[in-house]
Design a protein around this nucleic acid. Structure first.
Length: 223
DNA sequence: TACCAGGTCCTCG
DNA sequence: CGAGGACATGGT
């Protein structure tokens, strides 16, 4: 299973994937040197999206984020101050709305208390520390933490999700833990955020196809 | 009508 | 540890 070759096959088929699908703020089209440009607001939206999309279709997450925007709640301070009932109503379409309300509150509180709500400051800390801090928070597991670090922080951390495991499974590969999957990928790929970002996004595109048309999806891998 | 979607936490053996 | 269940809505 040659990961770079698979990457190329996926890239050739699906083409370059967009940056994290922002709802409230569009990413700047004229980013310098192809680097994604985002500010604190983008970063926070990405983190919120990462939590809301846990085991949930992105379509439903979009509705919830749109509600947050309309209610002017897309900052750590506003989320923390917002009443639980009101926040639950906003998050309702994303499912697990009681749990997710709690998760967003806890995450916002953490950011405010430790980084004054400044996402840039947070992600500029050492990656291993950022990851540990995220994992200590209730409601944030390894995938959500890595998504935040990669997509909001722009740091090279490979994200493993259900589709990634599914792809490995196609090659008869199965590991026990999240970290074992991660090692398998990072040991074989150049350590670059851009690559990790595209690769993960491509795997998602592939996974969605796979769920509809296994044959077509398998064919792409084996080109 | 069931089953699943870019997981995580809790409980029980 | 590891399996099994709970959490919840919306699309197919």
């Amino acid at each position: 299973m040659e990961l770079l070759k698979i990457y190329k096959n996926l890239y050739n088929y699906f083409g370059p994937q967009g940056w994290w699908p922002l709802v409230a703020f569009r990413a700047e089209p004229s980013a310098p040197r192809g680097k994604p440009f985002f500010n604190c607001d983008h970063q926070f939206e990405i983190c919120v999206g990462a939590i809301l999309t846990q085991n949930t279709a992105w379509k439903n997450v979009e509705k919830a984020i749109a509600n947050l925007v309309k209610a002017n709640l897309l900052t750590p301070g506003a989320l923390l101050r917002c009443g639980t009932k009101k926040l639950q109503t906003c998050l309702y379409p994303a499912g697990y709305f009681r749990q997710k309300t709690k998760k967003l509150k806890i995450f916002s509180k953490f950011l405010l208390e430790n980084y004054n709500g400044d996402l840039r400051k947070f992600f500029n800390s050492q990656v291993s520390i950022v990851r540990c801090q995220l994992l200590e928070l209730w409601g944030i597991g390894p995938e959500t933490a890595d998504s935040m670090i990669l997509y909001a922080g722009g740091k090279p951390t490979f994200v493993i999700d259900a589709y990634t495991r599914q792809l490995c499974e196609c090659f008869g590969l199965r590991f026990k833990t999240y970290d074992e999957y991660k090692k398998f990928f990072v040991h074989q790929l150049p350590r670059r955020a851009k690559l990790y970002n595209q690769y993960h996004a491509l795997i998602i595109a592939w996974g969605k196809l796979y769920s509809k048309d296994k044959k077509a999806a398998l064919k792409i891998l084996l080109l």
